[in-house]
């Protein structure tokens, strides 16, 4: 099959591969520890680990956009900030 119309590049392929691996990882986590580990965190409403991944990814997207708009094109610091943010979300939300 020819997928050239999708205009794949190595960085975008790695990006989607990372997302896919995260989803597989969440699936394995759910298999090992079923139930989604629901809890009420700092936001004062119940979240499962799936919710926390969603909040982490959405937040990371906006951190990267804000970095692009306010700072510049070098996104390594935005990535580091996103990882810290994701850890905080999984720990406290």
């Amino acid at each position: 099959m020819d997928f050239s119309w999708m205009a794949w590049t190595l960085p975008t392929a790695l990006f989607f591969l990372a997302i896919a691996l995260m989803l597989v990882g969440m699936g394995v986590w759910e298999y090992v520890s079923p139930g989604g580990n629901p809890r009420v965190g700092v936001l004062r409403f119940e979240t499962t680990r799936g919710d926390r991944l969603f909040v982490s990814l959405l937040g990371a997207a906006f951190i990267h956009l804000a970095w692009l708009g306010l700072v510049g094109a070098n996104l390594w610091w935005a990535l580091a900030l996103s990882v810290i943010y994701a850890i905080a979300v999984f720990r406290y939300v």
Binding site: W5, M6, A7, W8, T9, P11, T12, F15, F16
Partner: peptide, 12 residues
């Protein structure tokens, strides 16, 4: 698949 294609287009 359309979303992946849009992401690919957005960096080229």
């Amino acid at each position: 698949i359309p979303l992946m294609t849009v992401v690919n287009y957005s960096v080229q």
